[in-house]
């Protein structure tokens, strides 16, 4: 009994330690955002300091373009997620309920495209975009995000559809429903929690995306990732302002995640039906 309690305490301590390590960078970013540039740069890290909103003021002031970048982030994340779901749902539906001999291969192939580091396809995609005049174009970036998240969405939608008993789909077909009606009235309502969490995940991934945003956009289509990076400029590095910008970037998605966490956990851990 005693050893069990000891091990319980030890495990708890370990969990707290791991949590702290994981949370520390975010904590530090948060603290830095409220420091002056001098405090932020101080060689001996300061935990006690006079908090200031100066960095936020700079980050949000007229010339910073925060709202421009935020709009681009929001637009590309939301539209790419919706487009991704629109493409992924019928694809996954076909693979789940009308599988052919090549379905498994197709699925693995789709996911395997995620095995390639993004930088590996940077040059061809950059050239294609250049020739299509899609560089620094918001629609171009959105299309890229859609393609980026599509394999994930297909895979997740597929697994949620797979969880729906085949009998139910067949019962609907016998009851007189056409494929689209079965999908709309029977399968989608049942898979909704799962699809919602898949969509949330895609939204978060697109919102946080930085590699493509930084390489494929300049200012017109640039997202908040570019905005953060802009605080590391030729004039110098502005830790406090960069942190404030990061806080401003992360906050919307963290708030969304906070409200959606029950939905997320349910969708990611349970089957859609049981």
């Amino acid at each position: 009994m005693k050893t069990r309690r000891t091990s319980h305490v030890l495990l708890s301590l370990l969990a707290y330690a791991v949590a702290l390590v994981m949370f520390f960078p975010i904590l530090w970013m948060l603290l830095t955002a409220f420091k002056t540039e001098q405090d932020a740069f101080s060689i001996t890290p300061q935990l006690a300091f006079a908090p200031t909103l100066e960095s936020f003021r700079t980050a949000l002031e007229q010339g910073s373009g925060y709202w421009h970048y935020a709009f681009n982030s929001l637009f590309s994340a939301v539209v790419s997620t919706l487009a991704g779901l629109l493409l992924a749902v019928p694809a996954a539906y076909a693979m789940a309920f009308y599988p052919s001999r090549r379905t498994d291969f197709t699925l693995v192939w789709m996911v395997s495209t995620k095995f390639i580091p993004a930088v590996g396809v940077l040059i061809p995609i950059f050239l294609v975009y250049k020739n299509l005049r899609l560089l620094d174009n918001l629609w171009g970036l959105t299309a890229l995000f859609t393609a980026m998240n599509l394999p994930l969405l297909v895979w997740m939608a597929y697994s949620y559809f797979k969880d729906i008993p085949r009998d139910i789909v067949e019962a609907s077909a016998i009851d007189g429903a056409a494929t689209v009606q079965t999908m709309w009235r029977v399968v989608l309502p049942l898979a909704l929690p799962g699809l919602a969490s898949a969509g949330l995940l895609a939204l978060i991934l697109a919102w946080n995306e930085s590699f493509w945003s930084l390489t494929m956009t300049d200012h017109k289509a640039a997202t908040l990732a570019v905005y953060i990076a802009s605080f590391k400029s030729a004039e110098g590095l502005f830790w406090a302002k960069m942190s404030a910008a990061s806080v401003l970037t992360v906050t919307p998605i963290v708030v969304l995640g906070w409200f959606a966490q029950r939905q997320m956990v349910r969708g990611l851990t349970f089957g859609a039906v049981k």
Binding site: P165, D167, E170, A171, I174, L190
Partner: peptide, 14 residues
């Protein structure tokens, strides 16, 4: 124009 009763009943859960 047929109706079927499934072993699992296959009712629409929602």
């Amino acid at each position: 124009d047929i109706a079927m009763v499934f072993q699992s009943y296959a009712l629409y859960p929602h």
